[in-house]
Simulated assay, not measured.
Amino acid sequence: MAFSSCGDKSMKMNNPRNIKGVVSYKRSFGDLNAVQLKTAKAIGITPVASREEAEHLKKKLVKIEPCEYYDMDSLTHSIPYLVPTASALLESIGENFLDSLESKGLNPNKIIVTSVTRTKEDVKRLRRTNVNASMNSCHFYGTTFDISWKRFTKVEDPDGRPMQDVRADTLKLVLSEVLRDLKKEERCYVKYELKQGCFHITAR
Protein backbone atom coordinates (compact mmCIF):
# COMPACT_ATOMS: atom_id res chain seq x y z
CA MET A 1 0.00 0.00 0.00
CA ALA A 2 1.42 3.39 -0.94
CA PHE A 3 0.48 7.02 -1.36
CA SER A 4 1.54 9.07 -4.34
CA SER A 5 4.41 11.45 -3.69
CA CYS A 6 2.21 14.55 -4.00
CA GLY A 7 -0.26 13.37 -1.37
CA ASP A 8 -3.16 13.48 -3.85
CA LYS A 9 -4.06 9.89 -4.52
CA SER A 10 -5.80 7.91 -1.84
CA MET A 11 -5.04 4.24 -1.70
CA LYS A 12 -7.59 1.58 -2.39
CA MET A 13 -7.46 -1.03 0.31
CA ASN A 14 -8.79 -4.54 0.14
CA ASN A 15 -9.09 -5.49 3.78
CA PRO A 16 -11.72 -6.77 6.20
CA ARG A 17 -12.60 -3.22 7.24
CA ASN A 18 -13.51 -2.30 3.66
CA ILE A 19 -11.78 1.09 3.65
CA LYS A 20 -11.56 2.27 0.06
CA GLY A 21 -11.35 6.04 0.31
CA VAL A 22 -11.62 7.87 -3.01
CA VAL A 23 -9.63 7.47 -6.22
CA SER A 24 -8.18 10.99 -6.01
CA TYR A 25 -8.67 13.66 -3.36
CA LYS A 26 -8.14 16.46 -5.86
CA ARG A 27 -10.57 15.08 -8.44
CA SER A 28 -13.18 13.96 -5.93
CA PHE A 29 -13.06 17.22 -3.97
CA GLY A 30 -12.38 19.88 -6.57
CA ASP A 31 -15.28 22.29 -6.04
CA LEU A 32 -13.70 25.63 -6.86
CA ASN A 33 -14.18 28.84 -4.93
CA ALA A 34 -16.48 30.33 -7.59
CA VAL A 35 -18.92 27.42 -7.23
CA GLN A 36 -18.86 27.50 -3.45
CA LEU A 37 -19.08 31.29 -3.35
CA LYS A 38 -22.27 31.39 -5.43
CA THR A 39 -24.07 29.17 -2.94
CA ALA A 40 -22.53 30.90 0.07
CA LYS A 41 -23.88 34.25 -1.12
CA ALA A 42 -27.31 32.73 -1.78
CA ILE A 43 -27.86 31.07 1.59
CA GLY A 44 -25.47 32.89 3.91
CA ILE A 45 -25.30 36.09 5.92
CA THR A 46 -24.11 39.47 4.73
CA PRO A 47 -20.32 39.72 5.29
CA VAL A 48 -19.33 41.75 8.32
CA ALA A 49 -16.32 43.99 8.81
CA SER A 50 -15.52 43.16 12.42
CA ARG A 51 -16.31 40.85 15.30
CA GLU A 52 -18.22 43.67 16.98
CA GLU A 53 -20.46 43.91 13.92
CA ALA A 54 -20.90 40.12 13.93
CA GLU A 55 -22.54 40.36 17.35
CA HIS A 56 -25.64 41.80 15.66
CA LEU A 57 -26.05 38.73 13.43
CA LYS A 58 -26.00 36.06 16.11
CA LYS A 59 -29.77 35.60 15.88
CA LYS A 60 -29.24 34.29 12.35
CA LEU A 61 -26.37 32.02 13.33
CA VAL A 62 -25.78 28.92 15.43
CA LYS A 63 -22.85 28.86 17.82
CA ILE A 64 -20.70 25.78 17.39
CA GLU A 65 -18.46 24.39 20.11
CA PRO A 66 -16.64 21.13 20.82
CA CYS A 67 -19.14 18.33 21.33
CA GLU A 68 -19.55 14.58 21.02
CA TYR A 69 -19.24 14.79 17.22
CA TYR A 70 -16.31 17.15 16.66
CA ASP A 71 -13.48 19.12 18.26
CA MET A 72 -12.29 22.60 17.37
CA ASP A 73 -9.04 24.51 17.18
CA SER A 74 -8.66 27.81 19.03
CA LEU A 75 -9.98 29.73 15.98
CA THR A 76 -7.67 32.72 16.21
CA HIS A 77 -8.82 33.98 12.80
CA SER A 78 -12.52 33.08 12.77
CA ILE A 79 -15.60 33.08 14.99
CA PRO A 80 -17.51 29.91 16.01
CA TYR A 81 -20.80 30.63 14.25
CA LEU A 82 -22.51 29.08 11.22
CA VAL A 83 -25.88 29.39 9.54
CA PRO A 84 -28.22 26.56 10.66
CA THR A 85 -27.76 24.57 7.44
CA ALA A 86 -23.98 24.57 7.79
CA SER A 87 -24.15 23.76 11.50
CA ALA A 88 -26.36 20.74 10.75
CA LEU A 89 -23.96 19.64 8.00
CA LEU A 90 -20.97 19.81 10.33
CA GLU A 91 -22.79 17.70 12.90
CA SER A 92 -23.72 15.16 10.22
CA ILE A 93 -20.10 14.89 9.10
CA GLY A 94 -18.92 14.28 12.65
CA GLU A 95 -21.67 11.79 13.45
CA ASN A 96 -21.30 9.91 10.16
CA PHE A 97 -17.53 9.74 10.64
CA LEU A 98 -17.89 8.18 14.08
CA ASP A 99 -20.53 5.74 12.80
CA SER A 100 -18.30 4.76 9.90
CA LEU A 101 -15.32 4.12 12.17
CA GLU A 102 -17.48 1.91 14.38
CA SER A 103 -18.84 -0.05 11.41
CA LYS A 104 -15.26 -0.68 10.24
CA GLY A 105 -14.12 -1.86 13.66
CA LEU A 106 -11.90 1.17 14.27
CA ASN A 107 -11.62 3.03 17.54
CA PRO A 108 -13.50 6.36 17.71
CA ASN A 109 -11.85 9.62 16.69
CA LYS A 110 -13.42 13.03 16.24
CA ILE A 111 -12.84 15.44 13.38
CA ILE A 112 -11.24 18.81 14.16
CA VAL A 113 -12.69 22.08 12.85
CA THR A 114 -9.86 24.47 12.01
CA SER A 115 -11.71 27.51 10.65
CA VAL A 116 -15.28 28.77 10.56
CA THR A 117 -16.80 32.20 9.82
CA ARG A 118 -14.43 35.11 9.23
CA THR A 119 -14.90 38.85 9.37
CA LYS A 120 -13.09 41.10 6.92
CA GLU A 121 -10.69 42.05 9.72
CA ASP A 122 -9.95 38.35 10.30
CA VAL A 123 -9.07 37.82 6.63
CA LYS A 124 -6.83 40.88 6.52
CA ARG A 125 -4.86 39.53 9.49
CA LEU A 126 -4.80 36.01 8.08
CA ARG A 127 -3.40 37.14 4.73
CA ARG A 128 -0.18 38.09 6.47
CA THR A 129 0.61 34.41 7.01
CA ASN A 130 -1.72 32.53 4.62
CA VAL A 131 -1.55 33.44 0.94
CA ASN A 132 -4.73 31.43 0.29
CA ALA A 133 -6.80 33.77 2.45
CA SER A 134 -8.97 35.81 0.11
CA MET A 135 -11.14 38.88 0.38
CA ASN A 136 -13.50 36.91 -1.87
CA SER A 137 -13.79 34.14 0.72
CA CYS A 138 -16.76 31.83 1.31
CA HIS A 139 -15.90 32.05 5.01
CA PHE A 140 -17.55 35.50 5.13
CA TYR A 141 -21.04 34.05 4.80
CA GLY A 142 -21.39 31.63 7.72
CA THR A 143 -21.81 28.72 5.31
CA THR A 144 -18.27 27.43 5.23
CA PHE A 145 -15.84 25.64 7.52
CA ASP A 146 -12.54 23.77 7.28
CA ILE A 147 -11.88 20.30 8.69
CA SER A 148 -8.36 18.98 9.15
CA TRP A 149 -7.37 15.79 7.35
CA LYS A 150 -4.04 15.65 9.18
CA ARG A 151 -5.22 15.72 12.78
CA PHE A 152 -8.01 13.99 14.67
CA THR A 153 -8.94 13.71 18.34
CA LYS A 154 -8.74 10.21 19.74
CA VAL A 155 -11.75 9.38 21.93
CA GLU A 156 -10.51 7.66 25.07
CA ASP A 157 -12.37 4.80 26.71
CA PRO A 158 -14.47 6.17 29.61
CA ASP A 159 -13.34 3.28 31.82
CA GLY A 160 -9.68 4.09 31.21
CA ARG A 161 -8.88 1.01 29.17
CA PRO A 162 -6.12 1.59 26.59
CA MET A 163 -7.42 2.20 23.07
CA GLN A 164 -5.41 1.30 20.01
CA ASP A 165 -4.42 4.30 17.90
CA VAL A 166 -5.73 4.63 14.36
CA ARG A 167 -3.31 6.04 11.78
CA ALA A 168 -4.11 9.52 10.51
CA ASP A 169 -3.94 8.36 6.88
CA THR A 170 -6.55 5.68 7.63
CA LEU A 171 -8.80 8.25 9.32
CA LYS A 172 -8.38 10.53 6.30
CA LEU A 173 -9.60 7.74 4.01
CA VAL A 174 -12.70 7.14 6.14
CA LEU A 175 -13.43 10.88 6.30
CA SER A 176 -13.13 11.10 2.50
CA GLU A 177 -15.80 8.42 2.16
CA VAL A 178 -18.12 10.35 4.47
CA LEU A 179 -17.62 13.59 2.52
CA ARG A 180 -18.03 11.83 -0.83
CA ASP A 181 -21.41 10.46 0.27
CA LEU A 182 -22.62 13.85 1.50
CA LYS A 183 -21.51 15.43 -1.77
CA LYS A 184 -23.54 12.83 -3.67
CA GLU A 185 -26.54 13.79 -1.54
CA GLU A 186 -25.92 17.41 -2.67
CA ARG A 187 -25.55 18.61 0.90
CA CYS A 188 -22.18 20.29 0.38
CA TYR A 189 -19.32 21.38 -1.83
CA VAL A 190 -15.81 20.25 -0.88
CA LYS A 191 -12.35 21.49 -1.89
CA TYR A 192 -9.27 19.48 -0.97
CA GLU A 193 -6.61 21.86 0.36
CA LEU A 194 -3.20 20.20 0.22
CA LYS A 195 -1.02 22.97 1.64
CA GLN A 196 -3.47 23.89 4.41
CA GLY A 197 -4.10 20.25 5.32
CA CYS A 198 -7.87 20.58 5.34
CA PHE A 199 -11.12 19.96 3.53
CA HIS A 200 -12.77 23.31 2.71
CA ILE A 201 -16.53 22.71 2.93
CA THR A 202 -19.55 24.86 2.03
CA ALA A 203 -23.12 23.82 2.87
CA ARG A 204 -25.73 23.68 0.12
Rank of each mutant, 00 (worst) to 15 (best):
K120I: 11
R187C: 12
G142S: 05
F145V: 02
V166T: 01
D159T: 04
H139W: 13
L126C: 05
E177G: 07
H139G: 06
S176I: 07
D165Y: 03
R125S: 14
L171K: 01
V174C: 03
Y141M: 02
V116K: 00
P162W: 03
F152T: 05
V166F: 00
L171H: 01
I112N: 09
V190T: 07
L173D: 13
S176E: 10
M135C: 12
V174E: 01
L179C: 09
V113C: 10
A168R: 04
R127P: 01
S176D: 08
D165T: 06
S115A: 14
D165K: 13
K150M: 04
N132A: 09
C188E: 10
M163F: 00
V113Y: 11
D146C: 12
N130I: 02
S148V: 04
V116T: 14
A133V: 06
D157F: 00
E186P: 00
C138T: 15
D146L: 03
D122E: 05
K183G: 12
Q164W: 04
V113G: 11
L182S: 11
K124E: 15
V123E: 11
E177M: 06
P158A: 00
S115R: 12
E186M: 08
V131P: 03
K184T: 11
L182V: 05
W149M: 00
F152N: 08
D169L: 06
K191A: 14
K183N: 07
A133T: 12
S148E: 09
T119Q: 08
D165G: 02
T144W: 03
P158W: 00
K124C: 10
V174R: 01
D146F: 13
F152P: 06
K120A: 11
Y141N: 01
E177Q: 09
V131N: 03
S115K: 09
N136F: 06
K172G: 08
K183S: 13
S176Q: 08
C188W: 10
I112V: 15
S176H: 08
I147Q: 03
V116D: 00
R187W: 05
S115W: 07
E186A: 06
K124S: 14
E185Y: 08
C138A: 15
V174I: 11
Q164L: 13
P158M: 00
R167C: 05
I112P: 07
E186Y: 09
S137W: 11
S134E: 05
V131W: 02
T144G: 05
R151Y: 13
A133F: 03
L171P: 02
